[in-house]
């Protein structure tokens, strides 16, 4: 109790990794709302997106990229020779086999592949949740392969966002407390205007004081997306974010993610096995047996489905 404050302060001073530092060359993850050139829809009094079904359709049809958004080609995260081997000897399983991949800044990238293809392993290793057996992963300028457990934690807290398939929220915290959790953990003050605009965007303003158990599955996932966006991370990793939702709620979540990328310049990497979900991405990377076997840009559900059929056959 008595050590609480001192400890909290120590965390704040030593735990942060260049959160406000200028990003490395080529990797401009400028906080989008501060850029006057970019149209900032959420600053308008009327939100572009609402949860109402009608506006949703409107949004889903408007899939052309905003002309003012700068097109980034640099990688927000990349893997080189990424190899992950589980077990030993007879039980050895190669989950990732010398994977080289770049996830571009400002893009929504989907990782697809059949069960056991290594897609989740790839994401976990890229997100600092798991360690590679060999090879390297870089987030921005940071080579996380050699980072300590503590550095990885701080990395996840300050520079990454997460959306999981289920159990995304801390049951004892309200929606708003869940959304600001990473900032609270870092001991930093959330950017209120930004957080409010994110909340408006996902349409949760009237449910902020509710506990997760009082929210529907779709609402819970929206809180999770809001949390991922709230800290303005360099990359959001989403692991089957619509896997537990019905198709309507799933479409909503995917639309938000798409909106975050298109309009807010967010970088998102999403693991999915659903071709419809993958079709929301700018680019789809296909994994089989731990190797990247193909990729599609600006995919349609049919194209993704075709590709998957080819891979599984």
């Amino acid at each position: 109790m008595a050590t609480g404050r001192r400890g909290a302060k120590a965390d704040r001073s030593e735990d942060r990794i260049g959160r406000n530092d200028q990003p490395p060359d080529g990797c401009t993850i400028t906080p989008v709302p501060d850029d006057p050139e970019i149209e900032v829809p959420y600053r308008r009094s009327v939100p572009l997106i609402s949860t109402e079904g009608s506006t949703m359709t409107l949004l889903l049809t408007a899939r052309t990229p905003a002309p003012t958004l700068p097109k980034h080609t640099s990688a927000a995260a990349s893997a080189r020779g990424a190899t992950k081997i589980y077990g030993r000897g007879d039980t050895e399983v190669v989950a990732l086999d010398h994977v080289d991949v770049d996830f571009a800044t400002g893009q929504l990238t989907a990782i697809m592949g059949p069960s056991g293809s290594g897609k989740s392993t790839l994401m976990h290793c890229m997100a600092g949740l798991d360690r590679l057996t060999a090879g390297s992963v870089t987030i921005g300028d940071l080579d996380i392969s050699s980072a300590s457990e503590k550095q990885l934690t701080i990395l996840r807290r300050d520079r990454l966002g997460f959306v999981f398939q289920a159990f995304n929220l801390v049951p004892t915290l309200t929606a708003i407390e869940n959304i600001t959790l990473p900032m609270d953990l870092a001991g930093t003050r959330p950017d209120r205007a930004w957080v409010e605009s994110v909340i408006d965007t996902v349409g949760l303003s009237h449910r902020l004081k509710h506990r997760p158990s009082e929210l529907s599955g779709g609402q819970q996932q929206r809180v999770a997306v809001a949390r991922a966006l709230a800290s303005r991370p360099q990359i959001i990793f989403a692991d089957e974010p619509t896997g537990n939702l019905d198709s309507t709620a799933g479409a909503e979540i995917l639309a938000f993610m798409r909106h975050a990328v298109r309009d807010l310049g967010q970088t998102i990497v999403m693991v999915t096995h659903d071709p419809v979900a993958a079709s929301y991405a700018d680019r789809v990377v296909f994994l089989t047996d731990g190797r990247i076997v193909d990729e599609l840009t600006d995919p349609t559900p049919d194209a993704v489905l075709d590709q998957m059929r080819r891979l599984t056959n």
């Binding site: 965390d11 735990d15 949740l129 503590k150 934690t153 701080i154 996840r156 807290r157 300050d158 997460f162 999981f164 159990f167 995304n168 929220l169 801390v170 959790l181 990473p182 953990l185 870092a186 949390r227």
Partner: peptide
């Protein structure tokens, strides 16, 4: 989950 989103 809390650890994943950045609790040390």
């Amino acid at each position: 989950l809390i650890r994943a989103v950045g609790m040390t």
